[in-house]
Each structure stands twice: as C-alpha cells, then as structure tokens.
C-alpha cells in the first residue's frame, strides 16, 4: 500500500494534465499476490486447489462515467450502433442517450446492462482483460483482514445479508463497501460481474460427459463436487453466470477489469 500513494499522486497529476481532451476515468487498480486457492467447486475429481498467478484488479466495478468515456471514444459500442452479435436489445437501455447515461444512471453507479463482448472490449481498451472466474473467487474470499475468510460463519452471514438487502433497491455507488485485505471493494454487495470464462463454470468436471447434451446442459451444482457446499453466494453467482449467453445484458450485471502484472 505504501507504494500506491506516489502512483496515485502521479495518476492524479496525469489526469489533471489530460483532462480537457480525456476526462479522468477508470478505477484504481490493486495487485493481488499469487497464491494457492481452494475454489468452492473443485477443478476436477482429483484436484481441489488451483494456483493463482499474481494479477491486478480494478478496486471497484466500472462505472457509468467510465463506460461513457469508452463509448465516446469507441462509438461502435454505443447503443443503437452495437452489432446484434455483441449485445442484446436491452444493452444500456436505461441510459438517456447512446453516449449519455442521464439521471437514471448516475456517474458513480456501476454500469450495468452490458454484454460480455462489450465488457471485454472495454477492458481491452483499458489495457486489461476480464478476470477469470478463479481470480474473481480468490479476490472475493477475502475480508478486511484475512485472505480467506470463508470458514468464518460471521463473514458468510454478512455476505448473505448483503445479498438479501441489495436485491430490492437501486444500485449503490461504487466504493462504499469496506476494502478487503487486497484493497478490493464491492465484490459481493453491489452487482453480478462478468468473468472471462463465464460459460464454463458449471460444465461437468468429468470429460466423459462431454457431448451428451442432456448431461451437459442440465448438470447443476448437485452434479459437481462442491468443496464448500454451503457457500451459497458463490454457487448462486456461478449458476447465474452459467445461465448467460455472451450477448445478454441485465439490470444487475456489470464488470471490472483485470490486468497482467510482471513478477
């Protein structure tokens, strides 16, 4: 964290210098160290853990203001211009105009109603990529003091309470939840988030099932060997992501970007 301060100051300076042409946008990035991680759903019958390489992650989800700057620079991603292959008809439907979120989508709220293709294009333009699921889950296992707080019932209860509370109200602005030990915010309480490999999450870990359409399409969490069977928030998130197509958009589905770091 000590190194982050001069960088932030430099960032602020650059933002000031560049402001007339390019408004300052984009979240703060934090670096997560490499680690061994036990995901809720094991990667395979004989393997319980995955090795996560060091990577950087946006501390908060991408906001309407960030996304507005992106569609101004890349008009092919504006509502009305985006190809049907890349986004469904509800893409950015809540924005006032194609390049103007308007009052229904505040600058500091996370951008939602964006497709996987759109999220990916945004991250690519930002020099990054979407996080992979294991990276996302690794980041989300932490609380304010521990890298893996999942065994603590109090931690789980708090996350479940967040889900219950937030489903009914308007999206909160980003950056209002506590920073976890890595400095990442809003992983649980705010929105669903796209990941690069969303389509493979609930695919059976038994390759003999491949190609059997019935097994493949309908094997749910019950058919997978879940390591932490009562981690409902994670299983719920995996189920939701698995049900999406890459052009889908929903009112609670946004994203943040990940970045490679040089070791």
């Amino acid at each position: 964290m000590r190194a982050a301060r001069p960088l932030a100051a430099l960032g602020a300076l650059l933002a000031l210098l560049g402001s007339p042409a390019a408004p300052a946008t984009g979240a703060e990035r934090v670096t997560l160290p490499a680690g061994e991680f036990t995901p809720v759903v094991a990667p395979g019958p004989e393997q319980k853990t995955v090795a996560i390489g060091a990577f950087a992650l946006d501390a908060t989800p991408v906001t309407n203001a960030d996304y507005r700057a992106f569609v101004v620079r890349h008009p092919e991603w504006q509502r009305g211009r985006v190809a049907a292959l890349f986004a469904d008809s509800q893409y950015l439907a809540h924005w006032r105009r194609p390049a103007d979120p308007g009052p229904a989508a505040a600058d500091a709220q996370p951008v939602t109603r964006v497709s996987w293709f759109a999220a990916r294009a945004y991250c690519q333009a930002a020099g990054g990529r979407l996080p992979r699921w294991y990276e996302w889950e690794y980041a989300a296992a932490a609380d304010e003091t521990r890298r893996d707080a999942r065994a603590d019932p109090a931690y789980r209860e708090r996350i479940l309470a967040w889900y219950a509370e937030n489903s009914a109200r308007a999206l909160p602005p980003v950056g209002k939840t506590p920073r976890n030990v890595y400095g990442v915010m809003d992983l649980h309480a705010v929105i669903w988030e796209w990941v690069e490999d969303f389509g493979g999450l609930m695919v059976s870990g038994d390759s003999r099932n491949q190609g059997d359409p019935d097994k493949l399409q309908f094997c749910g969490a019950g058919a997978l060997s879940a390591e932490i069977r009562d981690d409902y928030p994670i299983l719920m998130r995996m189920a939701l992501l698995s049900s999406l197509e890459a052009s889908f958009t929903t009112a609670n589905l946004g994203f943040r970007c990940a970045y490679e770091v040089t070791p």
């Binding site: 292959l85 999450l201 099932n209």
Partner: peptide, 22 residues
C-alpha cells in the same frame, strides 16, 4: 470469443483435457 458466439460451453480440466459441448 468464437465459442461464446457459437454458444459452446467448455472448461479445461486439470489434466489438460476439455469438457465441452459438441
């Protein structure tokens, strides 16, 4: 991207093989 556009779900397994829709 191609798999996403074709709606082909897949996952690489620890042994390097793939579980995938045909």
């Amino acid at each position: 991207a191609i798999a996403a556009a074709l709606g082909i779900r897949y996952r690489q397994l620890p042994d390097g093989s793939f579980s995938h829709a045909s």
